[in-house]
């Protein structure tokens, strides 16, 4: 019986401490919120990526494809092509306080490359200041048609979000 009673009493003794701790947490959160330190934003690092890797039209199997996204730090994913040369990466999104900092010159920098016989081919190389993946990127990253016999070139795409600037993307892939 006494044992039974001791537990709630012990808990009761904890209450002021919990309240104090809660208050401290709450007030520091209020402070942080006031200065926007903890404010976090959704940052779209990459949409779903789907593509096919070929050499003069023939599918390349078992090739290592790497997706690197830099935004404050690096986020790296790897996959291999299947027997049809297909590969895919899931969408990648983070919560970040970087955009809340005053004047962050941060860019979402994305690189996708394939390594074939020790040689690197750039399938996608682009940077954006936007926190949401631009429409032009979303559309094209969903269908990367890459033949390693194509020369690497800079593609210029219409920028739906900011029409006064164009998107510049380095890639061996082609889109109609």
């Amino acid at each position: 019986m006494t044992k039974h009673r001791a537990t709630p009493q012990g808990l009761l003794a904890l209450i002021p401490i919990l309240v104090a701790a809660g208050y401290m947490l709450y007030s520091s959160e209020v402070m942080a919120d006031m200065f926007g330190w903890f404010k976090r934003y959704d940052v779209h690092l990459s949409p779903k990526v789907r593509g096919r890797l070929t050499a003069r039209g023939k599918p390349l199997e078992g090739i290592l494809i790497t997706r690197e996204v830099h935004y404050g730090k690096s986020y790296i994913d790897r996959t291999r092509t299947d027997s049809e040369g297909n590969f895919a990466f899931p969408q990648r999104q983070i919560r970040s306080s970087l955009p809340a900092r005053p004047l962050t010159e941060a860019r979402v920098i994305q690189l996708i490359h394939a390594e074939v016989d020790g040689k690197s081919y750039i399938l996608w190389q682009a940077a954006t200041e936007d926190l949401q993946t631009p429409k032009a990127f979303r559309e094209r990253l969903g269908r990367l048609d890459c033949d390693i016999s194509n020369p690497d070139q800079t593609h210029h795409f219409y920028n739906h979000e900011h029409p006064q600037f164009e998107h510049n993307v380095g890639s061996i892939c082609r889109w109609e």
Binding site: H70, R107, I109, H113, T154, H156, E166
Partner: peptide
Amino acid sequence: AVYSVFSPDSMGNIPMPLSTQLE
């Protein structure tokens, strides 16, 4: 654009494709 050159990727590529006018 030089802010997109934080560091080269693991293959040494510099991620800085340029606009038509600069290219």
